[in-house]
Design a protein around this nucleic acid. Structure first.
Lengths: 224, 224
DNA sequence: TCAAAAGTGTTAGATTTACACCCATGA
DNA sequence: TCATGGGTGTAAATCTAACACTTTTGA
């Protein structure tokens, strides 16, 4: 049974832009390409879509393969399919972006896969059209972040308000007024202050907060 | 030269959600599927990506094939690639949406292709995941329309403010206050009032306006 | 003469922005 | 004791939303 046999098939791959937040900077996980063509060039991590898997499943599998983590936040950026985007063969690639807490990523696994966290503002030239994928992924993530509380995916479960503010500054690329920021946060009941104090970041210590998912679904008024 | 031969290839197609505005309603161009499987079902118009064309070129070609029109506004919605989305074979499809002025579409061509303008709020069940494609395309278009003056692509070159308002109401799905709307329009210097009067829509007649692309690029302050 | 659509301003309320000082603590 | 990051409120400006009547003219 072959319905579309007069048309030609192409390879379809998935490339993942993995965002992390560390040292006050927004970072992307990239590595040296391990196959030809382009072996050794800086590249996003990716993989080919198998005959019996959907593209979302492929993205999940690829991400888990690299990070060992499940249930990460991931969204599609879009399809990239210029004829000559891949120097080897005709490949259409679907880009996804994912958010992870850098601390959750096992250091050994990172080294095994030979990938590194690079500041998004200092990315080297990447393989094929991967720089463009990163640009588009960032734009998408920025937009999403204004209206959905996904930033917490880049932070530990407990975080200080300064950390949260630095995160939003790093993602949006612009400074935020401390008092106005904290005022807005106070209005969101699903960002809960805990009794715990973080003593690492300052002498005085800063209150640790937590994102309450359940409270968010009951009253999802997020707007930054 | 075969780099990726251990991986399997799939068919890649393009499906186009063509939006039009007519009789105060937002409409989509759909037709009866002309091939197996699913022959006769309501469906978006689409086509397969050839080995030597990029996906954007494929979308352009598909759109021109159907409408005979060039330089239409078109944007990618995303890739759809569940394993079983197509009942015949494994096909990954990239959805695009396009905006056209219904009046520019040659009636004869429309009949030849056997497609119809259907109110987006009264769409029948469509082939495969096409209903979902339309939903996502609409959402994308709505978002874009708030910050970019793309609505004019759905109207004749000359239009009245009431037409423009009805368009925005149809796209956003909610009523807009007439006075507030016209106030905002007045602030945009690139929406120019002409000397011409439209006498079709009312006894009194309404001023016809025009979108000045050049003026927009000089001072792109659009916000609705 | 009247029905139908065009056109026009004001005001209250809500939201956004700008801005500076005291606090607690470890070194 | 002092340097460092934590924490707090107010006022002006801007933006948004609500709202009703007059005009023109073809039928």
């Amino acid at each position: 049974m072959t319905y579309y046999s007069e048309h030609s098939k192409v390879w379809v791959s998935v490339d993942v832009i993995i965002f992390g937040f560390d040292e006050g900077k927004l970072k992307v996980l990239i590595g040296r390409r391990q196959m030809d063509p382009g072996r050794g060039e800086w590249s996003l991590y990716g993989g080919f879509v198998a005959a019996d898997e959907g593209i979302d499943e492929c993205a999940d599998r690829t991400l888990r393969e690299l990070t060992g983590l499940k249930n990460l936040y991931m969204r599609q950026v879009g399809a990239f399919g210029s004829v000559n985007r891949d120097p080897g063969e005709r490949v259409v690639s679907i880009a996804y972006y994912a958010l992870i807490n850098v601390k959750d990523y096992d250091e050994k696994l990172r080294q095994e896969h030979n990938v590194e966290w690079i500041d998004i503002n200092s990315l080297p030239p990447l393989y094929s059209d991967h720089n463009e994928m990163v640009r588009q992924a960032l734009r998408r993530m920025q937009l999403k972040m204004r209206t959905q509380p996904i930033g917490f995916r880049l932070l530990p479960q407990l975080f200080t308000l300064t950390q949260l503010q630095r995160l939003y500054e790093a993602v949006s690329g612009q400074e935020i007024d401390k008092r106005n920021f904290r005022k807005r946060i106070k209005d969101m009941d699903f960002i809960e202050k805990t009794e715990l104090i973080d003593k690492k970041s300052s002498k005085r210590g800063a209150a640790l907060y937590r994102f309450n998912k359940k409270a968010y679904y009951e009253d999802p008024n997020f707007k930054l």
